[in-house]
Amino acid sequence: MRPRSVPITSAATARSYVRSVVEEHRRVPSGPAGERAVMDLLLVVSEAVTNAIRHGGGLAGFEVALLPEGVRLSVHDYSDAVPSAAYGPGTLPHSHEGSGYGWPLIIRLSREIHIERRRAGGKTVTVLVPLT
């Protein structure tokens, strides 16, 4: 499936859209394992979009593509700053000080994480979330 770019204004609208794409194409096995994979995917969607809004100067774009190995998400924002420990092990912080769980969760639940600077400024974070 070719990536689809849609107007997304919040994590909730992004989750709803991604769930509808996955359900429309029914590439997720049914049962608890399939639902767990969808929940992991929706968690990554929430965290990536929220990070763009809270830390990236706003959401500049959102794309989703279904692939045989999972779902590829691309989240565009307006900040050139790359997340600290961008490709680290996904270790969760020992204490919570208002933020810090989102990026490690994205790392733990995703594969093929790429961060690219955009010509117009900002960056694109692209991840592949497996559905198996």
Score class of each variant (00 low, 15 high):
residue 37 A to P: 08
residue 80 D to H: 02
residue 38 V to P: 07
residue 115 I to C: 00
residue 77 D to E: 01
residue 74 S to G: 14
residue 18 V to K: 06
residue 39 M to W: 13
residue 22 V to I: 06
residue 69 E to N: 13
residue 74 S to C: 14
residue 102 G to M: 05
residue 79 S to W: 00
residue 131 L to I: 09
residue 68 P to K: 11
residue 64 V to D: 07
residue 107 I to R: 15
residue 13 T to A: 14
residue 43 L to Y: 13
residue 42 L to K: 04
residue 34 G to I: 02
residue 33 A to M: 03
residue 94 H to M: 10
residue 19 R to T: 04
residue 35 E to P: 00
residue 124 T to K: 10
residue 52 A to K: 10
residue 72 R to S: 08
residue 53 I to D: 08
residue 130 P to I: 01
residue 86 A to M: 15
residue 81 A to S: 11
residue 96 H to Q: 07
residue 123 K to R: 14
residue 16 S to F: 10
residue 97 E to G: 00
residue 120 A to S: 09
residue 87 Y to Q: 14
residue 78 Y to D: 06
residue 72 R to K: 13
residue 89 P to A: 15
residue 60 A to Y: 03
residue 92 L to S: 04
residue 18 V to H: 04
residue 115 I to L: 01
residue 46 S to G: 15
residue 117 R to V: 00
residue 4 R to F: 01
residue 127 V to Y: 11
residue 102 G to D: 06
residue 101 Y to F: 09
residue 130 P to T: 03
residue 45 V to P: 09
residue 112 E to I: 00
residue 4 R to S: 00
residue 57 G to V: 12
residue 116 E to P: 02
residue 103 W to H: 02
residue 8 I to K: 01
residue 44 V to M: 14
residue 46 S to K: 14
residue 42 L to V: 03
residue 38 V to G: 05
residue 68 P to A: 11
residue 127 V to F: 06
residue 27 R to G: 15
residue 35 E to K: 00
residue 94 H to N: 08
residue 82 V to A: 07
residue 64 V to N: 05
residue 121 G to D: 07
residue 13 T to W: 10
residue 44 V to W: 15
residue 104 P to T: 00
residue 31 G to T: 04
residue 8 I to W: 00
residue 50 T to C: 12
residue 122 G to E: 05
residue 11 A to S: 15
residue 94 H to S: 12
residue 64 V to Q: 09
residue 71 V to E: 08
residue 106 I to P: 01
residue 89 P to N: 15
residue 36 R to A: 03
residue 42 L to Y: 01
residue 91 T to W: 05
residue 79 S to T: 07
residue 49 V to E: 10
residue 83 P to H: 11
residue 121 G to K: 11
residue 104 P to F: 02
residue 84 S to Y: 12
residue 64 V to P: 07
residue 67 L to C: 11
residue 24 E to T: 15
residue 12 A to L: 12
residue 3 P to S: 03
residue 20 S to N: 13
residue 54 R to Y: 08
residue 128 L to K: 04
residue 45 V to L: 10
residue 85 A to W: 12
residue 100 G to I: 04
residue 103 W to K: 02
residue 76 H to M: 05
residue 15 R to K: 15
residue 123 K to V: 04
